[in-house]
Amino acid sequence: MPAAAFLSAPPSRLSLCPQTAPRRALAGAIDRLARAVLLCGRIEEAPRMRLTSFSDYALRLLIYAARHPDRLITIEEAALAYDISRSHLTKVANVLTRAGFLNSVRGRSGGLELGRNPAALSLGEVLRVTEPDMAAAECFGPEEIRAPNRPGALDAAIRDALAAFLQVMDHRTLADLLAEEQE
């Protein structure tokens, strides 16, 4: 199937094993992964928003905790599951715990658990904590580093784009991500 047809085909047509529910779920995951890989290779046609690895790891850690609501998770197991540095994930967990997104239980049988209901945890809120000085481009940050000869209209356009991005993320929750994952 050509790449363009693959990207535009409905998931039902791409399903590998439609006979059973677990196989459909696996096929859906493969479909989404294949589409993501194809889109990443088409940079000129698929603009990307870049977040720091810190935010990426924070969202992954929250997803991991949400997947295991019946028990405490450890940084070690999440680091292994996502192939992330344990020390970096520890820093992420500390920020998420201070923000109240995760609860930390100390001790030998301790670990982490979600601090809030996944349906009440917006992705925009998480990004505002993990990207406190978020700017759409390096040179479009705080006024003190603003280039003096850059047009103000350009700053306004980029501020509007960033606000629109955060507004979309405010309407998506951790529960939404979990539900999409299971489709």
Rank of each mutant, 00 (worst) to 15 (best):
M1N: 05
A4M: 07
A5K: 05
A5L: 11
L7C: 10
L7R: 00
A9D: 02
P11F: 09
R13K: 14
L16W: 14
L16D: 06
C17Y: 09
R24I: 15
R24Q: 15
A27N: 05
A29P: 02
A34V: 09
L38N: 09
L39Q: 14
L39I: 03
C40Q: 09
R42F: 08
E45Y: 11
S53Y: 15
D56A: 04
Y64E: 00
H68L: 04
L72M: 12
I73S: 09
T74E: 02
I75H: 01
A78P: 01
D83N: 13
S85M: 07
T90L: 10
K91H: 04
V95C: 14
L96A: 09
F101Q: 05
L102E: 12
S109G: 10
S109Q: 08
S109K: 11
G110M: 10
G110Y: 03
G111D: 05
E113Y: 00
G115F: 03
R116Y: 00
N117H: 06
P118W: 01
A119G: 01
A120Y: 00
L121F: 03
G124M: 10
G124A: 08
E125F: 07
V126R: 01
T130P: 08
P132Y: 01
A136D: 01
A137T: 06
E144R: 11
E144I: 00
I145C: 03
A147M: 10
A147W: 05
P148V: 05
P148L: 11
R150W: 02
A156I: 07
A156D: 03
R159L: 11
R159T: 07
D160S: 14
A163K: 15
F165P: 00
L166F: 15
L166D: 02
H171A: 15
H171L: 11
L174P: 06
A175L: 11
A175W: 03
D176G: 06
L177I: 13
L177T: 01
E181K: 04
